[in-house]
């Protein structure tokens, strides 16, 4: 007769246990810059109630959070701030790009707006919409929880292999052509025209 475990004991892997805990207690850091920030607030308030999915503990300090929600467009003056906040967050961490502007620049194809934050920081999940409805954001968070449960590891090994930038390469063909036509900006290091390989 085989010796069974008592009913209140079960065996699992440490990775799985950690993922189960992590996915059900996400602490979002709302990087709310524009309109999507208001929908993020609506998601957290009583009608949609993000607390049902264990992700309502919004903390504005990056040191306490493990989920960065970038809600709204990010412009070139703001991007260094976003990168710094991302680097300040402790591992393991995830990033949701909420809304069309954060995903791709949206309707703002102008000189100042970064055309998708995934060009400069890693993004795990995109929520489209301008702005996305709260239901959509909740669906995104559930999807992310699901993914954490499936692929996560205790020490974040799954991230180590991702050495390439996740976003599209910033210089498409038409952009190269336009850069050649444009007069270069002289005397400035950070805004100088980049070297273009042909």
């Amino acid at each position: 007769m085989a010796v069974g475990l008592p009913e209140n004991v079960f065996l699992t892997k440490l990775d799985v246990a950690a993922n189960w805990v992590r996915s059900n207690s996400l602490w979002p850091m709302p990087f709310a810059t524009a309109c999507c920030g208001i929908e993020l607030m609506a998601t957290a308030s009583s009608r949609f109630d993000l607390a049902r999915f264990g992700a309502e503990v919004m903390r504005f300090s990056p040191r306490q959070c493990d989920l960065l929600i970038v809600a709204g467009r990010v412009v070139m003056k703001m991007l260094p701030v976003l990168q710094r906040i991302w680097l300040q967050m402790p591992e393991p961490k995830w990033c949701i790009s909420m809304g069309a502007c954060a995903c791709s620049g949206g309707v703002f194809d102008t000189y100042a707006v970064v055309q998708g934050i995934d060009r400069f920081i890693p993004v795990d999940l995109y929520v489209p919409g301008c702005p996305p409805r709260p239901e959509q954001l909740i669906a995104g968070i559930i999807e992310l929880q699901d993914r954490i449960k499936k692929t996560g590891t205790l020490d974040g090994r799954e991230f180590v292999t991702r050495t390439a930038a996740t976003g599209p390469q910033p210089l498409e063909l038409d952009e190269i052509r336009r850069l050649r036509e444009a007069t270069p900006v002289a005397g400035l290091e950070i805004f100088s025209t980049p070297d273009i390989k042909t």
């Binding site: 810059t33 709204g72 412009v75 003056k77 703001m78 701030v81 703002f108 102008t110």
Partner: peptide, 10 residues
């Protein structure tokens, strides 16, 4: 200017 996105140019 941390959200200056060129509305007037658009």
């Amino acid at each position: 200017g941390y959200l200056h996105s060129g509305f007037e140019k658009l």
